[in-house]
Write a protein that binds this DNA or RNA. Structure first.
Lengths: 253, 253
DNA sequence: TTGTTCAACTTGTTTGAACAAGTTTATTTA
DNA sequence: TAAATAAACTTGTTCAAACAAGTTGAACAA
């Protein structure tokens, strides 16, 4: 069983979009998902859409850009914009991104639980600094959590957070959604996430918490998160259960 | 030793760009990589850049968008565009993409060799169709290759190509760069790549060709490539050597 | 019939303008 | 002094227009 995570992105929020292009993007996306625009078809021309949505061509093009980034359509110079959506994409849709574990999972209807197995503070030494890129001497929260989906251990996450930027953390908060706390309580917006996937041998901790039996290694997602000011405030190493691991991405030109 | 692959993207080509915004993007990128624009600094304002490059603000913004997608800068409403480049990114730069193995490797100065271990034709049956999404009955080239970097086996790739779209393939061509053949000989342009990373147990074939000893599983990159017409012409499963595997991506909003 | 030209589409690039909205600093007001 | 205001920046959104360039099909010419 592969849980489709790691694919809901920033734009997957439920807030009311204020920008015109965002609404147009969502409406066209909906029509693609509901097969009103069938795979292989061309979207109405930009001029048609301009009339239909009573906006400028630039606005249509910005909406279309999102669809391209999501791998839903593909523009063809001189011909039109073709739908290349495949039903198998439905739960893997992403526009360049990944976001909170809880959000994406709950959106998919999964039951999420979190077990906090470590919660301390520490100061970054040279070794840790080299690994995380936090400056030496930075005071950090050190949090280790096991994330469950419908009762099955999905990942073992080690998170380091700058205490000066994300104050007031408690194990209780960490047991819920860190993403939610950062965005809605602290009021800090996550703007950029740089991620890297590598393979690592499993440790005793992995074995213990992820209940990995069939594999001797695990995919590790290392991510560095930046806030509005361009400050790196979070570093996370997510060690995943190989059975349910899936990561999607779309490239285009 | 981690070879930095899977990160050179479409825009990493050497052709002369015709578009203004592309040149501006490349120039600013260069200044970031050479630390003329230091990490933490703000780029000159859009108005300044507009004057400097003698173009419109929209053109500057389009160039900046590429830098954002690449994780080099981050815009801050009302303040400016901040550089968030880190030296560790240098060989991992990507704008949403991945491209040919040979290109990216050779660009990094690695010596690439390819061993063709299988080259046949077949017709997609129901099982294969379900796996690849090629329509049942499609005639395909079936190619298996081992890719080496500086003499070390990096991946074992199984590629299926639509014969009607990519005709004239030979084992000799497959021993070189398929990407090159498709783009430059057939003249077909790759426009969209949909990828998915999962973990799979290693097979006898993996063991034999990738010389994997320390791991019992391998990261598999499944990719479906679309041409200008929105037709899927290639399906590839790339089984990677865990030791040298790395996959990078950037998310932003 | 066959090949060429041309007009009418399509998306791609660029410009210039205006206003919205977040940030900062200086100024004014209490 | 301290708070509120205003002005001058910044990026974000939207519009209208023009031209470049790829695609298609109808009209035309050989």
């Amino acid at each position: 069983m592969v849980y489709h995570l790691f694919q809901v992105n920033f734009s997957g929020e439920t807030r009311m979009p204020k920008a015109k292009y965002e609404n147009i993007y969502k409406e066209i996306k909906q029509k693609i998902l509901s097969h009103e625009y069938e795979s292989g078809d061309y979207l109405p021309s930009e001029n048609d859409l301009t009339e239909k949505y009573n906006c400028s061509r630039n606005t249509i093009r910005k909406a279309t850009l999102f669809l391209i980034e999501e791998g839903l359509v593909q523009p063809h110079h001189g011909k039109g914009v073709r739908v290349i959506y495949h039903e198998s994409q439905r739960y893997n849709l992403t526009r360049s991104g990944i976001s909170g574990f809880s959000q994406s999972a709950e959106k998919s209807g999964y039951r999420v639980t979190t077990q906090v197995i470590n919660f301390t503070e520490l100061v970054a030494d040279g070794r840790l600094s080299q690994r995380t890129y936090f400056p030496e001497g930075t005071t950090l929260y050190f949090i280790q959590r096991v994330r469950y989906l419908n009762g099955t251990a999905k990942s073992l996450d080690t998170t380091l957070l700058r205490k000066d930027l994300i104050p007031g953390l408690t194990p209780e908060i960490a047991a819920g959604s860190l993403f939610d706390y950062i965005e809605n309580v602290v009021g800090m917006e996550i703007r950029t996430i740089k991620r890297s996937i590598t393979i690592s041998h499993i440790s005793e901790l992995d074995k213990k918490y992820l209940k990995i039996e069939d594999y001797d290694c695990t995919p590790v997602i290392t991510s560095r998160n930046y806030n509005l000011n361009g400050e790196m405030f979070e570093y996370t190493e997510s060690r995943n259960n190989p059975d349910s691991f899936q990561f999607n991405s779309v490239a285009w030109r």
